[in-house]
Amino acid sequence: MRHTLAVLVENKYGVLSRVAGMFSRRGYNIDSLTVGVTDDPTISRMTIVVMGDDEVLEQVTKQLNKLIDVIRVTDLKSEESVDRELALIKVNSDVTNRSEIMQIADIFRARIIDVASKSMIIEVTGDDGKITAIEQLLRPFGIKEMVRTGKVALRRGQKSS
């Protein structure tokens, strides 16, 4: 099972490596990890997607809390939170199929952010399912390169503090 954790940490040197090191040392798998500063510049927020059952989740949460630089760990359950991911997809294209690709992008409310003679880059934002879907539709044209940011998530409603 996939869990999304919001981890508030001190915005300090070495914190990412403490968190990543804990995961690798204890044999937990990180599906994706994103980091960025919050509205408080001394605090960063990590969104970590981790695979495992409830026992793994419990241990991961406790081990994260043991790190001195970790301020709070929240399990973002999917029904109580919203999440998004951004992907940039560079796909083969020429005059013959350019409009077809643009239509697909349109359907997904994705944007074309670069056009070259033999390729274009599409920017798409959404949840995991949406990104996988557009990826599959674009695959027949030939995906030259693709990058995903990893998931970011927030709990719905009031601030989770």
Binding site: E58, Q59, Q63, N65, K66
Partner: peptide
């Protein structure tokens, strides 16, 4: 005293 030891 270490919560991480419980049910480890």
């Amino acid at each position: 005293i270490d919560p991480a030891e419980i049910s480890k």
